[in-house]
Design a protein around this nucleic acid. Structure first.
Lengths: 341, 341
DNA sequence: GTGAAAGCGCTAACAA
DNA sequence: TTGTTAGCGCTTTCAC
């Protein structure tokens, strides 16, 4: 049986409260008493019972992280960063995955299994703008992603439109004019796909290049296989293009693979640009030019904001906040830096 | 304020115990009472307080997963599978990462932050065989990986030696004789690197091919960059080889990239074989032949064993168990199936 | 089939 | 500076 505060108190010959004070670093404890207590703690191998502490204090020291899928590199790297940052605040992370399914996302918001977390970092992929009211939960929550804007909670996200626009401009600057897009979502107005496509269109327009819908291929998911498939379709349909902008890196890597199968040279025949800057992009063949959307900063900001919300009601901001992190275009072999005039 | 059992009982006009019975699906409750209670639960939006339940019952419904790093694809995919399987058992997963640091691994074993988990799935990378006694913790634990064997806990792992031997034999069968190895760990006797190297040597010996230490390159970590670096060293040293066996996929993909930078054709000049079968291997250029070590099965077995240990003491096996999952060699472009006689 | 009461281990008033 | 006491919300005997 594990030792309790009681056991420690008995052994040290003090009251349970004194032990509690020592354990919680309450300052007004005499050095002698403290030493006695610490010794007893050591001898008994005492470890506080977190369930009890949590029941009593209403705080568990656990935050929840809800993601579509951990096997997608983007989310794996995000989770890694969240866990690292949480640890700095003395918090541990409960990871839940939804498979990007709207119903499961909604369910998790009111799931009792999540009740033992102090707050949530929530990255939906199935829910949409219309579901925003559902985010008005009675615990602290930080929203990630670009499925819902202006909701009732803090929101940390990337500059999708601007970043996609910059990526497209990068390709335009290097002389490309027929830029195929991989990974659009049909009928989507918000969401990463729609926003990035919008950035693409803005860049074309600014450069006076006509938008050609034939260049835009649609997928449901954003895995490597979807990118590969889209690229086969584009090529099969005889669409001419001199560049590809993939709406995320996984898609783009899949597409790049098919380009090479087809004997197209990268970047000579086709320049390729991705989005996400996952670690893999750097070691692909050829290495993938992409947009670094500030993933680590998103993770860290999300944790920091959540911790703020967890703090005393006094320090807690009343209004939901919208935070945008910085991005940058990373030039690699698949789309080298254009020679600037 | 959230509703409690008490509130529900009051509203339904029954005792707190009856509500508890309904919540816990205790069978002997009359249909009328049950309906009344369920209605009250619904009206109040009652959600059980898991901290209280956990304090009282001694079980939290949370299991811990301790990994070196979530951003390594192998572990990300492992975590994904663990979370999926845990959910089937109604459990949620707390993920902790250690950065493969021995001290942090040891610390996490007795960390109070882990005390609110019912049990642990533990994948160390820094601890070694000598640390086996530290695994004798007083909560259920399942050990993964190949750093410690014959320890005091259940252990689920892959057939490293046999799988590496099969991979090497595959290369030998396709006529390769000078097989470079990427990712060995100097001085290691146990651990994935040592075991896989052993399999490599066994295959060579069985085929009557001499072992040449010059072909074996060493790394500390197993990231893409380490594989790339090793490959540059091998080539720089003028070592001749007609195949590469990378001790994991990430390493191998890094190495493969350098091979291509150097103008070597894969598999014509150099056949390449990895280990892990991460999703990326399938979409690399060229697609990577590799060993599927049964990652999903490892994850699922680990969760299932842990759940068994979580169960009543009656059903609990007394002796630590050692489980090995099946592997298979996956032939792709980087090392095609040899033409069998 | 249902109720009453005890207590899991801890924290936070309040007292001393 | 330290001790006493009352719960946090739930499960679990044990009666009825």
């Amino acid at each position: 049986m594990a030792a309790t505060l009681h056991d420690v108190a008995q052994r040290a010959g003090v009251s349970i409260k004194t032990v509690s004070n020592v354990v919680n670093d309450y300052p007004h404890v005499s050095a002698v008493t403290r030493a006695k207590v610490l010794e007893a703690i050591d001898e008994l191998g005492y470890q506080p019972n977190l369930s009890a502490r949590s029941l009593r204090s209403g705080r568990s020291g656990v935050i929840g992280l809800v993601l579509p899928e951990l096997s997608l590199s983007y989310f794996a790297e995000l989770a890694d960063a969240v866990i690292a940052r949480a640890e700095k605040h003395g918090l541990v992370v409960l990871v839940e995955k939804t498979g990007a399914d709207r119903d499961r996302e909604i369910a998790v918001l009111s799931s009792p299994r999540m009740r033992l977390t102090d707050g949530l970092i929530f990255s939906p992929l199935g829910m949409g703008q219309g579901d925003a009211p559902l985010l008005a939960v009675d615990y602290p929550m930080i929203l990630l992603g670009e499925r819902i804007f202006g909701g009732p909670v803090d929101h940390v996200t990337m500059r999708n439109v601007e970043a996609a626009r910059a990526a497209t401009e990068f390709l335009l600057d290097s002389g490309r004019r027929r830029i195929a897009v991989v990974g659009a979502h049909r009928g989507e107005v918000l969401g990463s796909a729609a926003l990035r496509l919008q950035g693409y269109r803005e860049a074309l327009e600014a450069a006076g290049v006509d938008y050609d819908p034939a260049l835009v291929s649609h997928t449901t998911l954003w895995h490597r296989s979807n990118g590969a498939e889209s690229m086969r379709e584009l090529i099969g349909a005889g669409v001419e293009f001199d560049a590809v902008f993939g709406l995320n890196d996984a898609l783009t890597l899949g597409a790049m693979r098919v380009l090479q199968e087809e004997g197209l040279r990268i970047p000579d025949d086709v320049a390729v640009m991705g989005f996400d800057n996952i670690e893999e992009a750097q070691f692909a063949v050829p290495s993938l030019s992409t947009v670094d959307p500030g993933r680590t900063e998103i993770a860290e900001t999300a944790v920091d904001l959540l911790v703020e919300r967890l703090g005393g009601a006094a320090a807690r901001p009343r209004e939901p906040r919208e935070l945008l992190v910085d991005f940058r275009v990373v030039a690699r072999e698949s789309a080298p830096e254009p020679a600037r005039a």
